[in-house]
Amino acid sequence: MTIPTIVGAGLIVIGAGLGIGKIGGSAMDAIARQPEASGKIQTAMLIAAALIEGIGFAALFAG
């Protein structure tokens, strides 16, 4: 593994982490606001997180 690859991987992880963190935080807010819709919010949150994660992994492996 060369240094640019490692740095790139680190950047990807930071970006993906921030993205998933934002999704999680927003989902928490949404659940706090509307606890009765928590099931739907959770599903949407998981899908969005999974999509970002997928992109993160794809970039990581492409590197």
């Binding site: 999509l51 992994f57 794809a58």
Partner: peptide, 11 residues
């Protein structure tokens, strides 16, 4: 489907 494949594998 590619992201499906990578996600499961990588996790």
């Amino acid at each position: 489907p590619f992201s499906l494949m990578i996600r499961l594998y990588a996790n």
